[in-house]
């Protein structure tokens, strides 16, 4: 018996800093928009279980897009992009996300992203606290050096396997094999974007000394880092939260750097906690 998922996919076209983009997104649910960013070199299937979670989608319109050059979102249509080295900058990334939210006319969205999506969540809270109701930076820190590497697309090695097996032990050994291998599989698909994404992750994203400028009273910030993440440890997530006035921190035990994709049931418990914290902050403001 065939079974259809309630998740639907669409394309939307808009412009970002002169680039004409046709962007693919998946969505399900109704209520406050919860906009989800995948990790570097990946695509929106990392959010597959959240998108189909009846409990969450009862109250939230979950939207997971593919960043330009990822998944089904092609590189810019009006540009000879193959003649340039791809390096994602904080300015472009932030402009993309706000343009996407504007294109969909989203009101008071909560933004959630993991890894380089977590780092950009911090950038959004800093630069556009009025545009977002709250942000949930997952696997985030003020700075995450060391991953902008040529190995990810070295012509003498199998880039698909280097990317996928290179991020393998960002995941926890306790996470189910099926989900870890699905995540590995996604990572075989994005090697051409991965290195350029990591330019943002390890070079251009640097909020050291600037976290105090984020106002988590205006735009609530709940940071969540996982125990098996070797790039941004729980300790680094906690230290980042401590430097942001009003920010909160949740440590996720027994899980790694791709929590929503490697072990959704464990991630969900923490996500619900984060959403409750945000709801009570926003409720206190209006009440």
């Amino acid at each position: 018996m065939a079974k259809f998922s309630p998740v639907t996919g669409r394309y939307v076209t808009f412009e970002v800093m002169g680039d004409e983009l046709k962007v693919f997104f998946l969505e399900n649910g109704s209520g406050q928009p919860l906009v989800c960013q995948h990790t570097a070199g990946c695509h929106n299937h990392q959010w597959r279980d959240l998108l189909e979670d009846e409990e969450i989608t009862q109250n939230y319109r979950v939207i997971a897009y593919d960043l330009v050059r990822h998944g089904k979102s092609d590189p810019p249509k009006n540009k000879e992009w193959w003649k340039e080295e791809y390096r994602l900058t904080a300015d472009y990334y932030v402009a993309f996300i706000t343009a996407f939210c504007d294109a969909l006319e989203l009101e008071d969205p909560i933004f959630m992203g993991s890894s380089f999506g977590g780092q950009v969540a911090l950038q959004l809270a800093l630069r556009h606290p009025d545009r977002f109701a709250a942000v949930i930076p997952v696997e985030a820190a003020d700075y995450s050096p060391g991953f902008f590497l040529d190995w990810w697309q070295h012509p003498h090695a199998n880039a698909a396997q280097v990317c996928a097996s290179g991020v393998w032990d960002l995941m926890a050994p306790q996470s189910p094999d099926q989900d870890r291998w699905a995540t590995w599989f996604y990572y075989t698909q994005g090697s051409e974007a991965f290195r350029g994404d990591l330019y943002f992750y390890s070079v251009d994203h640097d909020l050291r000394g600037r976290l105090g400028e984020i106002d988590a009273e205006k735009c609530p910030v709940v940071i969540m880092n996982a125990e098996y993440d070797y790039l941004t440890t729980p300790e680094e997530g906690r230290q980042t939260a401590e430097q942001i006035p009003g920010a909160e921190f949740i440590e996720m035990k027994g899980i790694g750097h791709f929590p929503m994709s490697e072990n959704y049931p464990v991630f969900k418990q923490h996500l619900q906690q984060a959403l409750q914290k945000i709801e009570s902050k926003l409720g206190a403001r209006t009440g």
Partner: peptide
Amino acid sequence: FAAAFRTDLSLEGDLLVLMQNLR
């Protein structure tokens, strides 16, 4: 990789061969 970033483990020699056989 986790141990190379966070413990005393080091990866030495011709890392290209390691990357070619990483999986």
